[in-house]
Amino acid sequence: MSDNSNNDFRREASGASDHDIQVVHGRMLANQEEPKEGYSLMPLFMLGFVSTMIFLVAIYFIHNRAGLSEGLGLATQIQDKRFNPDKHMPDDTVVAIDPIAVGQRLYAQVCVACHQVNGMGIPGAFPPLAAVDYVTGDEDRLINILIHGLQGPMEVNGVQYNGLMPAFGPSGTYNWSDEQISYVLTYIRQEWGNEASEITVERVAEVRAATADRTTMLTAADL
């Protein structure tokens, strides 16, 4: 292998031996307490910097430690064989439910995939929910669609659709409660410019009981 200008690049020389690296750095650590010539600002800066960081981060952590004290308390109780969550959890955990907020969350988890965030659906594939009589009109018909699902050709606001709306009652995979169905229907009936009445849990329960013997999905003819 002859020497050429490229050679240094292909075999980099060491600038120091391993032993020298060990000895010199060992000496630097051993000598750090001795006063040096000239005054170094580094120790002062480091002390101030580290203290400031600990101070600021501690304030942040204390303000955002949500659940730490309670969690530690509960953790010790859960290890206790006598701990019964029904008996020992605080009673004030039950709070009033806002049907619109819960309905919005349910909608965002499931319905949004087809009917979209803006409630406009996708023309030709999924019908819209905004400004549609099926949504804002007859309550029982709307509850029925949600409990049993809907399939086959139908026309919504002059556009033809041929799709499948899954059942949210006991025959479908979702099997939502009366509460969940009422919340999500109440939500879609007042969103995107819709201004229809609230659908109560009791109304859903009545429709569910009245149509309990239905085993197939609805079609446009049933509406």
Partner: peptide, 10 residues
């Protein structure tokens, strides 16, 4: 829990 997130950010 909030403190887990706070621990990460801290």
């Amino acid at each position: 829990p909030g403190w887990v997130q706070a621990l990460g950010v801290s």
